[in-house]
Structure formats: C-alpha cells, structure tokens
Design a protein around this nucleic acid. Structure first.
Length: 462
RNA sequence: GUAGAUGUAGCUCAGUUGGUUAGAGCAUCGGUUUGUGGUACCGAGGGUCGAGGGUUCGAGCCCCUUCAUUUACCCCA
C-alpha cells in the first residue's frame, strides 16, 4: 500500500519545524510582552457550539465528526439513522443524530465558550492567547490548507479602543521582528452598517463590500455591474459612486465618508472610532508596518461589530492575508453571557511561513535541520561508553551534543551522518584519545581538526 | 459547485508522427579509501507507466470511464 495523507494536510520535517518554531516563538514572546496568558481548548467542540457563528458559507466548511459506535444503536434508532443519513445527502446539513461533535473552525468561538464557562474565575478584562490548529473543509489551494495553525490574542471585557491600539502595536512589533514588510488594513463594521443604513439595505451589506473590494481586479464598471447583479437598486448604486471612487489619504477618504454618513448615527460612531485610532497611531509609534484605512474591508466572520483588521505582506507576489481580527460586541451573548465586548487578532502562521519562504526572510542561523553542536564519533564499545560520559559533561555545560549510537565498520559513516544533519563539529574518540583523555575535534565546514582536552573542548564549543 | 493542468523508480522529472529490453538526476547500497563527511570516479538494486476498458499487428503516447493531486474563480488564515 502506498502511504498518503489527507489532502490539505501536511507533514513537517525537522528543517521546516525549525522555521515554524522560530515564528511561533516570536509570536508567543510578543503575546506575553503585551500581557496575554495562554489557554488551550479541545480540538473538537459540540457541533451546536460552532454552527451559526461563521455565516452560511462558514458553517458548511466545518469538519464534522461522525458519531461513534452508531453500529451499537438499538434497532429502531437505526432506522431513524438511516432516514437521517438519506436526508442529509439531499441538504447541506445533518442533525446531531449523525454528528454531535466537530473540529474547531477557529479559536475565537471556543474562546467565547470558555469565557462563559469560566466567567467567575476570570479577571476582566481577560487577555488570553491561544496557539492551536484549526480545521476547515475547504478545497485546498496555494496558501489554503485544511489544517492550519492560528495564533490568537484576544481581550474580552473591555470596550476601550486602547485595546485596538495595543493590538496594532503588537502586530507592528511582531511583523517587525519577523522582518516581514506588512500592510495592515483596518476598517470599522459600524461604517459598513452606516452605509447599509443610508442605502436602506442592511441585508446586502456583505454583497456591497465584496463588490467594492474587487475594484482593483474588475474596475469601476465591473463593480457597478456586480452590484446590479446582486440586486442593488440603481438609485443605491448612484449613491454609492463616491465610495467606489474613494481614494487618497486616510483623511481625504474620511472626509467623503463623514459626509456620506452624516445621517447615520452608527456610521458617525464608526468614523469617530477610526479617527481615534488614526489620532493615536503616533502615540504607539508604529515603526515598521504601513497602516491603511480601507472601507472595502469587510471580513466574512459575521460576529465582528466594530474595528476589523487584516494584514498582508507588502512585498513579493504571494500576498494572502496573514492576519485577521476585529472587535465583537456580543460574542458571548449567544452562550448566555451578555455585555462583554472583546477584540482580538489571529496570526496565520502557515501563510506567514509561505510568505517568509518566498521572500527568503528566515535568518541563516535557523536554516538547518538540527541544533546539535557536536557529534561524538566512536570506534568501538569501550569508546562509546567513554563518549556517553563526555556527552553528559558537555550537556551540563549547555552544549547540544549527541553520540553516534552504533559501532560501525566505517568511521566515515558517522561523519556522513554529521554532515547530513549539518552538525558543525565532530569529536572523534579512538583508543589514542581515550588514553590521553582528549578529543580530536573536527570543524566540519573548515575541514580542520585539533586535539583538545575536555576543558578546552567545552571552551571551544561554548 | 465551475474551469484548467498533472499522474512514469523512494523523490524531482525526460520519454520524438504509436514501434525491440521505458531513461536521467537526486536518494539508497557497494567499491576506489578498515582513523574522516561534503567534492570526484566505478558499479548495483529499484517500474503492473494512477486504475479500468477500448482502438491497433503493436499503446507510457490515441479514445472513453474513473480515481487522485494541483491551480484559478467564490470565500478565507
């Protein structure tokens, strides 16, 4: 049998893990620096926890888990199961008779569930980070996987826009440390709601923003055509024209918007919030990222209600969104806990990896498959035991060391192993060295070697 | 869902209008070298050409079906 893995999933070898870990470490360090504490939640949730939170399209991308041991059901139940199975082939959902559990689709909804279940134990505002895989039953493509990691940081129980500022600052710092030139776009759902209010078509707001978002790709006429196809009235399209044409600096765009939304309370609130963020960007000293307001930024997840964020690499040809996030006023409400506002972001580490790979941003030092500093090569059983003692001495000194565990005919094999694993030094211990209590240390890249006693060896490798 | 591309050795891929025993590089193993890898040279093993059917004297190549992978649209990290 030829082995394979499910599509949209990947194995990660040591060399890839080294680089992935590098990203995780930087992200995690920044989460901690900004006061976020870690939690983890189960890979699977009750399906009722997840459905209805991600919009119609999102719901269909949830990976469902078939109920276990259905073969043990009583006979009358089996008939019911059969009917449900037949029915579920005809429609895009099935009941909990077949599926009670599902793999998590993101980390935000499980977080909301966690907050509700642990309400009395938490100190608000509660700041948590969470780095775990999520699963989506999407069709895989470049930069789109069925299993991928999200790195979330959310603060819940505070409606202050200072949280948004802190998150912006954290994004800037993190991407700076990763050395990724980044464009952070932000918008406010209240503005989108305002636009819908003015046009009197709140149900079409997603269609409208999606259409406007395509301006770059299909041009102004294309956008207008798409709006018409989505059932937007000609009068509304006429009204929208200044927004389609929106360009210039953040200030110029806001001026147009302010006028457009002058009769929408919620729209005006959105503008106020955006001004707050823009006014204080200087305070938080964004050093690296380009920050841009973009009223076409909509984001699919339907729980966002305020600020929304998205980041893309600002270089290269492969520029998928590598971070998303936003504010949700009432995510815990559906789980019965009202009045907790939250805001959070999610780094998409798999795409960050792909982008960094394309732009060759991984530092040389981590670009190898092993962290071993020295391999102790041996010539026989007695030498091998001697190596073990020396290895533990090296490790006590904090030097990553490994011992070649087999006694082999050709010593070259051990050098070959070190070479393949890119181990920089090989310590050779034969009977000569053992007698003198020394090591013949070879520098693998230079090809040179010198005989050292144990103290010299440690000093040399430190 | 819609459209395109690709399936040949463990991996990456060649393979001429259809014509003897299907090739290369890398990897593996052995040797040149029984105290030295990466470089060089010599040799070896390894294939139901994704699967099934059809056309033909003859199919890796043409036709049909099917499965898998992949890219784009939609949406998203």
């Amino acid at each position: 049998m030829k082995p394979s893995i499910p599509r949209g999933t990947r194995d990660f070898g040591p060399a890839e893990m080294q680089k992935r870990q590098y990203i995780f470490d930087i992200v995690k360090a920044n989460f901690r620096l900004f006061g976020f504490a870690p939690i983890e939640t189960p890979s699977m949730e009750n399906i009722s926890t997840l459905t209805g939170k991600y919009g119609e399209e999102g719901d269909q991308l949830i990976f469902k888990i078939l109920n276990s041991r259905i073969h043990e059901s009583k006979e009358d139940k089996k008939e019911e199961l059969r009917q449900e199975f037949d029915a579920s082939i005809q429609r895009p959902y099935n009941t909990e008779l077949l599926t009670e559990k599902a793999l998590r689709y993101d980390l935000t909804v499980p977080f909301a569930r966690y907050v509700v279940m642990n309400h009395n134990k938490l100190a608000y505002p509660f700041k948590r980070y969470q780095i775990q895989p999520v699963w989506r039953a999407d069709k895989p493509q470049k930069g789109r996987y069925r299993e991928f990691y999200q790195c979330d940081a959310d603060v819940i129980g505070s409606d202050s826009l200072v949280n948004e500022l802190e998150l912006l600052s954290m994004m800037d710092k993190t991407f700076h440390e990763l050395n990724i030139p980044v464009l952070i776009k932000f918008n406010n759902r209240k503005i989108l709601s305002g636009i819908a209010e003015i046009l009197n078509s709140s149900d079409k707001i997603i269609d409208i923003t999606v259409a406007i978002d395509k301006l770059d790709k299909i041009g102004k006429d294309g956008v207008i055509k798409e709006l018409a196809e989505k059932g937007i009235s000609p009068e509304s399209i006429e009204k929208l024209k200044p927004l389609i044409d929106l360009s210039g600096s953040n200030e110029e765009k806001l001026k147009v918007l302010t006028q457009f939304l002058s009769h929408s309370e919620i729209g005006k609130k959105g503008i106020e919030e955006i001004y707050f963020l823009l006014d204080h960007l200087r305070t938080i000293a964004i050093k690296h990222a380009t920050i841009e307001m973009d009223i076409t930024l909509a984001r699919g997840l339907n729980y966002y209600t305020g600020t929304i964020f998205e980041a893309k690499a600002n270089a290269g040809t492969f520029t998928p969104s590598i971070l998303g996030g936003g504010r949700y006023d009432d995510l815990t409400g559906i789980f019965g806990l009202k009045g907790l506002s939250g805001v959070g972001i999610s780094f998409g580490i798999d795409r960050i990896y792909d982008v960094m790979e394309e732009l060759e941003l991984f530092p040389e030092s981590i670009n190898k498959s092993s962290t071993t500093k020295v391999l102790l090569a041996n010539f026989g059983k007695a030498e091998l035991m001697h190596c073990l003692t020396l290895a533990s001495k090296l490790r006590t000194a904090g030097i990553n060391a490994e011992v070649y565990p087999d006694v082999v005919k050709k010593i070259g094999k051990q050098f070959e192993y070190a070479d393949k694993k890119q181990i920089p030094f090989v310590g050779v211990i034969g009977s000569n060295e053992m007698e003198k209590n020394t090591v013949m240390l070879k520098d693998m890249s230079a090809g040179t070697q010198e005989e050292l006693n144990h103290d010299q060896l440690i000093a040399r490798l430190k």
